[in-house]
Design a protein around this nucleic acid. Structure first.
Length: 217
DNA sequence: AAGTGTCA
DNA sequence: GGGC
């Protein structure tokens, strides 16, 4: 018996390459080597620790977050916004590693959005059971700038709803080294991440890391 | 509601 | 349910 978990479109998901999923939405499979990224993320988290943010209506996000760059994304009872200082410490966020900015610019250009200069790298950590509810990235000043999302570690299913949050979404099986870029007509699209499953044989504390690059200001 | 829990 |  075969359990099909993804559409036939994604049967060749292990092969590197670019897939145009929708206008402005690109999936760059196995695009980056992630080991150096993990080391840099550990340095970022040493300066700005992982935290589970609170949503404006009191919910607790299951994804642990931190940031690097001139501004960082933050949420609490006051709402969603970008802040120049880590609310936990009052200090500026760790600088964005030059290699991060270069990677984001290269991936954006590959997807058709040249000249991308992110000022924020939101770092997400998904432990088993963590998920990201359906939302859109709408706190940035210039929605003409794309979003670049880099997957590291455990595989996950990225959900693309598009213009409305009514389903069914496109289910994109993102793996270690995959990059998803959304810009242009896809930039306001609703999206999310399915509850992270722990693969058989994985360590109980295994996780998925995600880098989301934005131009917030 | 970038929340979770429950029911149909 | 909890940070400002």
């Amino acid at each position: 018996m075969t359990v099909t978990t993804v559409p036939d479109l994604f049967d060749d998901a292990r092969e590197p390459g670019l897939v145009a999923l929708a206008p402005g939405l690109a999936w760059l499979r196995r695009h980056v080597a992630t080991a150096p990224l993990v080391a840099a993320i550990e340095q970022i988290a040493a300066a700005a620790p992982w935290r589970h943010l609170t949503t404006p209506f009191g919910g607790r996000m299951s994804v642990a977050m931190t940031n690097a760059g001139a501004v960082g994304w933050h949420s609490d009872a006051r709402g969603y916004r970008y802040v120049e200082h880590d609310p936990l410490s009052g200090r500026p966020w760790p600088a964005m590693p030059a290699a991060f900015a270069a990677l984001a610019a290269e991936a954006a250009a590959r997807a058709g959005f040249p000249g991308f200069e992110p000022d924020c790298c939101l770092v997400n950590r998904y432990a088993a059971g963590a998920q990201m509810g359906v939302h859109r990235d709408y706190d940035e000043r210039d929605l003409g700038q794309p979003i670049v999302s880099v997957s590291i570690g455990l595989p996950a299913v990225f959900l693309w709803y598009g213009e409305t949050r009514r389903g069914p979404p496109l289910r994109v099986p993102v793996a270690d080294g995959d990059v998803v870029v959304f810009g242009g007509p896809a930039r306001p699209g609703y999206h999310g991440v399915r509850r992270l499953a722990l693969p058989a044989g994985a360590a109980p504390d295994a996780c998925r890391l995600n880098l989301t690059f934005r131009r917030a200001r």
